[in-house]
């Protein structure tokens, strides 16, 4: 794994691929085989007719490593395009998390109050628990989870980052 050094930066890389068997293994195998980091990974088919999938990888590394990651992904045969949102153009990043908090009394009230401040939605509730759905930049999701920790956080499921560029252009 890449050591975190002062020049290490976090990058969000979007990869448009042909949705064929093994394509995710090619991308993930490239990261493990060459010792690159994966902080989060999101993948789904985005065009059911053209059968293309979009893989969004959040990675970290020195600028040299990031440049290599983009180039190495670019030479995988089923890859259509590689875009680094962090460098090439300003992108928007969103992540969704489902956050389960269990507790009663003041802590339960505080959890609900904070969830409103974060515009999280309650999607499941019992007398002793909530499941919140929160969407936002990864840092916002991080902050919300940190706040829930002392209030009875029991479980978290995160989707990983989905990213898109601002403005009218496609990837």
């Amino acid at each position: 794994m890449q050591q975190k050094t002062p020049q290490t930066q976090r990058h969000t890389i979007a990869i448009l691929v042909d949705n064929e068997a093994g394509v995710l293994a090619r991308v993930v195998g490239l990261f493990s085989g060459r010792g690159y980091n994966i902080e989060s990974l999101t993948v789904a088919e985005v065009d059911h007719i053209a059968r293309t999938s979009r893989i969004t990888v959040v990675t970290s590394g020195t600028p040299e490593v990031i440049e290599q990651i983009e180039a190495q992904i670019g030479r995988l045969v089923p890859v259509h395009r590689v875009v680094n949102w962090t460098v090439s153009k300003p992108g928007i990043e969103r992540e969704m998390a489902l956050v389960k908090v269990a507790g009663t009394g003041d802590k339960r009230v505080e959890a609900l109050r904070l969830s409103e401040a974060f515009r999280a939605r309650v999607i499941d509730t019992t007398h002793t628990s909530f499941v919140f759905e929160i969407t936002g930049a990864p840092s916002k999701v991080d902050a919300f989870i940190d706040l829930m920790r002392p209030l009875g956080l029991v479980d978290v499921s995160r989707t990983g980052v989905a990213a898109i560029s601002r403005g009218p252009e496609a990837m």
Binding site: Q68, A71, R75
Partner: peptide, 11 residues
């Protein structure tokens, strides 16, 4: 011919 070789070991 392979873009991934550029700046791989030497800038």
């Amino acid at each position: 011919i392979d873009a991934s070789q550029i700046n791989k070991n030497v800038r």
